[in-house]
Amino acid sequence: MDLSSINPVVLIASLMVAATPILLAAIGELVVEKSGVLNLGVEGMMIVGAVSGFAIAVTTQNPYLGMLAAIVAGALVALIFAALTQLLMANQVASGLALTLFGLGFSALVGQNYVGIVPPRTPKLDFGPLTDLPVVGRIIFGHDILVYISLLIVAATWFWLNKTQGGRVLRAVGENHDSAHALGYKVTRVRILAIMFGGACAGLGGAYLSLVRVPSWTEGMTAGAGWIALALVVFASWRPWRVLAGAYLFGGIMVLQLNLQAAGFRIPVEYLSMSPYLITIVVLVIMSSSRGRRSMAAPGSLGRSFHAAG
């Protein structure tokens, strides 16, 4: 049992796969929170995506159609949340929790006939000889399409949030919805779209579990991934690239501790597993206490309902 038995290349390659579901869900939730909405229903949206993607993939025997279905299904359940919180002014925390409860039940109901079925395989992308390159081969050229798509979404989200007019509007809405409204921005419309985007990403993250990572359908198979995604957004201080870093760090800690165990190291698993959350709290404290760096803190209107008073 020595550390040299742990191959960093393989470690990185496998943590990328392990992190992809939470990365997808977290980047979606980041956009939602940037618009000033806290949706605690990530777990519910993920599992609805997981079951819908699985069902459609099995029916059509095409995993990509399944992923598409997961995106649509995630956005649709998110729409319930959007309707409650944006149109009917319901409390976001309670609505999000209700969405998770509903999503877990709904997915189980839909999934009853899909237990024990093997979905069509999602192949890894074929890069030909590139995959055999030392080091980079496995890390960069050894994955299925969703790993790349997730990275693409992170890049696109960063670009859109920071470099486009749409992104500026969304951030303005999240920082202070009253001023945004005064400027003539459509606060409610922006938020509904953001919530649907969040649902779509969470749905895709769920489908990654049921179609690529596991791949099979079982009730409750997301096993808390949605809650980790929520923590991740905070850990990342609402920045897309940090969500990526955070997801890989979370995934990395999990993969590393399993690898250390497999290599024969005695590690206190039960305590190590709480470390990501403790680290996140510390990061949160550092962020919120550093004055003058307001951009690192939570969006100003996070969790507050908006109703135009005129």
Partner: peptide, 13 residues
């Protein structure tokens, strides 16, 4: 499932 998959990978590695 996700963690079990990662554990299997680690062991194979």
């Amino acid at each position: 499932p996700a963690q079990e998959a990662a554990a299997a990978e680690a062991l194979i590695e």
